[in-house]
Write a protein that binds this DNA or RNA. Sequence first.
DNA 1: GTTCGCCTAGAAC
DNA 2: CTCCGACAAATTCGG
DNA 3: CCGAATTTGTCGGAGGTTCTAGGCGAAC
Length: 837
Amino acid sequence: MPPKKRKLNNASEGSTPARTLDYFFGKQNQKSSPRPSSTPDPTLPSTQIDQTDQILTDEKLAQKLQAEFDAEARVFSASQQPPEPVQPQVTSPKKSAQADAAPDTTKLSTPKPTVAQNILSLSATPSSDDPLVASLPLDENPLTFAPSKCLPGLLPSWTSESGAPYALLTRCFTLVNNTQSRIKIVDTLTNTLRLLIEGDPDSLLPAVWLSTNAIAPPWVQGMELGIGGAAISKALKTACGLDNRALKALYDKVGDAGDVAFEAKKKGGFTFRKPKPLTIKGVYQSLVKIAKAQGPGSGETKQRIVDRLLQDARGGEESRAFLLSIPPNASYNVPYTQEELRKLKKDSLAAIYAKTETLLKTLFARHPDYNALIPALLNHGISSADILLEKCGLTLHTPLRPMLGSITRDLAEVLSRLEGRAFACEYKYDGQRAQVHCSSDGHVSIYSRHLENITGQYPDLVALIPQIKEDEVEGFILEGEVVAVDKVTGALMPFQTLAGRGRKDVDLSKVKVDVCLFAFDLMYLNGKALLEEPFRRRRELLRTKFKEVPGKFTWVKSQDATSEDAEAIQEFFKKAVEDKCEGIMVKLLDPEPGADLTNAALGNDEDPALPDPDSTPSPSKKGSKPSLAEKKPRRKPLLSTYQPDKRLESWLKVKKDYTASHSDTLDLVPIAAWHGQGRKARWWSPILLAVRNDETGALEAVCKCMSGFTDAFYRAMREFYDDGEVTGERKNTHPRRPGWIEYSGPEPDVWFEPCEVWEVAFADVTVSPTYTAGMGMAVEDRGLSLRFPRFLRKREDKGVEEASSSEVLVRIWRKQMDRGNGKRHREEAEGVEIEEE
DNA sequence: GTTCGCCTAGAAC
DNA sequence: CTCCGACAAATTCGG
DNA sequence: CCGAATTTGTCGGAGGTTCTAGGCGAAC
C-alpha cells in the first residue's frame, strides 16, 4: 500500500476562476490516461488530475506510467527528432540496465523502473542539447529582452500538445545557480516566465511549481515526493559503480549532491542513454505521479535541478513578468510598454516595480496558492488589483501566511524600538502554532505555521472550536498556540510532551495528551477580513466574540505597556519564563499616529510612487522634518495590522535564551566532527560536543553543534584539528574513538583530541533517546541533550577538566522542570519509565 | 501470517 | 527553530 | 549637492533534537 493516504482536497469555496487547473492539465490527462470521462470538473481542481490513480496499485501505476512514457517518447521522436536508437526501456540486459538498476536494486524501492529511468534522464539532459534554448539571452535586462523576437524561432517545436521544453527551465536554473546576484536572478526568471506567458501560457503554472521546489501548496496532503538523500546515494552507487568509500570521498570533496552526481558520472564512465526531450508539463506531471505513487525514483533530478531553486525574491519575478508580458489571447493589456518603462527614471521604474510586487505579495500572503494565483494573473493581468484580490483574497479554509516575529536581543532593544507607542506583551507559549478556520456551518480546519493541514491531528480541537464562539459569530479565522496541558491540573507541559501526540488521523477517543489553545489573534470574522484592522481592534473582537472553555480554550496571557514601563515588562517577562513559556511576544496595538487611516492597503490608486499606507512614519523625508533631535538607529517601521506580506516579522520576539543573563550556558568540549556540506564543505561541521562525567572522568556526548561559527573560526578549526588533509600531518585528531569518550550514534568523520572548552547557548535541556550525557541521572536509561544548541565563544580561560559536568546538565534540567508548579511532573518523569506503555 | 526492530522521511520547535 | 554571509537598498558621510 | 561609505533589511543555506508514520526484512 502506498504510504500516504490521498485525501481529497476540498476545493476552495470561492468562485472558480475561468481558467481552472484542468485547463492546464486537462489536455495532458486526456492524452495520457485512459480515464473514461474527460470532462473537467471545475469543483475538484487539484485532485481531479489523478483520481483514477488512487485505486491503482503501485505496480499497475508503474505499468501505466511506463506506457505513457513510451507513448510520449514515440510522439517526440516522431515529431521533432531524428529517430534515435531508443533502447528498450525495461528489459535491456546491459546498458540501460545500469540506469534501471539504480532504483531497482536499492533495498527501499518498489520496482518502478520506468519512472526512475526517465527521471534520471532529466538531469542527464544538458541544457545545451537544445541550441535554440541555449542561445536565449535569458539574463538580459527584461526591459530590452524581447520574447516576441525569440518566440518565432522557438514556437515551431513547442507543439500545442507538448508545450515548452524542460530545457528552457534547466537553462534558466543553470543561469540562476551560477550567479549570486539577486538582480540577475530576478531578471532571468522574469524573462523565462515572460517567454512562457507569451509563448505557452499553459506551461506557466507547472513551471512556477517547479521553480518553487514544490508541486502543490503545503496544505494539500499526499503530495510529498518521498525521496531523500539516502535514495540518491544508493542510486549513485549502483549507477556508477562506486563503493561507499569512494562516494563518501566525493561528498566530502564537493559537498553537494548534484555535483557529486556529476562527478560520479564522469568517474564511473557511465553514459546515459540519449535522453529524450522533456517538457515542462511532462516533468511536472512525472513528479506529481511520483508523489502519488510514493515510489522511490532516483531523486537526483530533484536534488540537482529542482531542489535548490530560489524562493528567492518571491513575487518580484512574477509581478515583473506580468507587467511586461501578456498571454496571446489576453483580454487585457499591459499598463506600460517596454519603451515607456525604459524611458522612465530609475526611481519611477522602481516605484512601479515595487507597486506590483506589493500587490503580488499581498495576494500570495492571503492566498498562498499558485494554482489560484497564476490562472488569475493570466486571465486578468497584474493591473486589476481588485479583481485579483477578489479571486485570490482571504478565504475560509485556505490558510494565509502567518505573521512572524523577529528576534530581539534584550528588552532594552524592544523599548527603544517602540518608543512612544503602546504595545502588548504576550506570553510566548511553548507549543505549536495553529491557524484555525471555522465556517458558519461549524466546519473546522486547522493549519500549522508552515501551512500544513493539521486538522486530523487535533480532533479534540475540532470538537472544541464550535463551543468557543459567542452566538453572533459565524465564520472566523483565529490564531493561537496549542500547548500540552496536564489532564488533571491543567498545568502547562513541555513541548516534548506535545510532540508525543499522534499526527495522522488521530482518533478522538485515543488522545492521551490533552491540549489547550491559547488564542492571540483574529484575522477574519463574519465575512470580513480583519487584516487591515489594528491589533487593538482585532484583539478586542477576539476577546468579546469568543469565550473561555476552562482548560481547553483561553486567551494568551497579556499585558499592555509603553516604553515607560520597563520594570513592569521585565517582571512580566520573568513571570512568563517562570510559567514555562519561552519568553514574550511584543506587538504594537495601534497604527502609526500620522499614518493614513483610510489604508487602502493595495495600491489601487493612481500614484505609483505612493508609499506604503501603514508604514509611513516619514522620519525625515526631503529635509522637511529634520528635527526630533534623536539619532536613534533608523529601523523599519513596525505594523499594528496583520500583513505578513508587507514587513516580514513585524512582531518582536523576546526569548529567554537570547540573552546570557536569563539563561544558562554550558562549557562543552568538542570531541568529534563531520565533513560539512555545500557551503561548509571545506570545514568541519557539525561538531560533536561533550560534558565531563566527574565520576568516571569520561566525556559524554551531549549534542552536535553547527550554529554560531564564523567562517574565520571554521577556517582556524580546520587547521587546528587536521586529519592530515590540510597540512599533510595529523594534528589533534584521531582516526578512532578514544576510549574515554562515550558516544554511540552515527560515526563521525574525525575524532578530536579533547583540548578546548566552548561556551554554548541553548533553549532547553531535553530528555534524549540517543545521547548518553547524564545517562540515568535524570531519567532512567536516558541521557540528556540540548534544544537549539549554538556556539557562543571559546573559553580561553578553561581547560578540559573545567568543562561543565553532567551534574551541571542534570541540575539545569531539574531547574527547568521545576519551573512553575511543575515539580511534580519532574518527579513523575524521573520515576516513571518513559518506555512504559 | 504477524510482529518487531531498523531505517528514512517529514515536520514541529 | 539558530545562526552567519551575501546582496541590495536606505542613510549618512565627506568633499 | 553628488558619489562613496556605512548601516539595515532580507533572504538563503546549513544544519540542531525529537517525535510519528511507513516500508521492509528478519524473526517468530
